[in-house]
Amino acid sequence: MMIKGKVAPMLALGLAMLLAACSGEQVNYKRGVYLLLDTSGTYTEELNKAQQIINFLLANLEAGDTFVVARIDSGSFSEKDIVAKVVLDSRPSAANRQKREFAAAIDQFVVSVQSSAYTDISGGLLQAVEYLNEADVGQKSIFIFSDMKEELPEGYVRDFSLALDGYQVKALNVTKLRSDNVNPQEYLARMTDWQTTIEQGGGRWAVVNDLDRPEALAF
């Protein structure tokens, strides 16, 4: 009876704590990753490297995570530029199958991709933000596999500020252009501009050129 008397309040306390934990604000642990692939000019030659990154990300994604790969071309603010997308199933066996199908779709894309004349990075970013805002994810990451030089077709306007609160934006494998080599200031100014744009929107900005670092692709 003595033990019963001690155990009952403890059980009640545990139950109360559990209820308190459940009644609190629910944290969304699902992750959303949107990878933008630059397909302009000679950058298409880098897509094999991008494929490795995609495979790495696929291997590290878990049940419930969202992964989208989209191309950056002349007008990227469009769903048509999405190459492959997936919301991983909660069952590991189904998630495995989805990952295989995703990897196959990327394989097909890398083989058949044609380079575009222009590079609409801002449009792609806006599309990524729209998509991830719509998706039920808690942690949002946008990876841009590009030289980060934006070239828009005539008449295209990309004069807007992005709402990137809670977003992590990483520019991957930012290759230096010939003009950058002539005047490195151009490269630095380009990077600073992007950083300002992202941080003004409330996002976190990072440039990762050494993809061998373990934390390079952390999300």
Partner: peptide, 12 residues
């Protein structure tokens, strides 16, 4: 996780 939804979480 093959039977119970592994993507949802309670208290982390």
């Amino acid at each position: 996780s093959e039977m119970v939804d592994g993507s949802n979480r309670i208290g982390g």
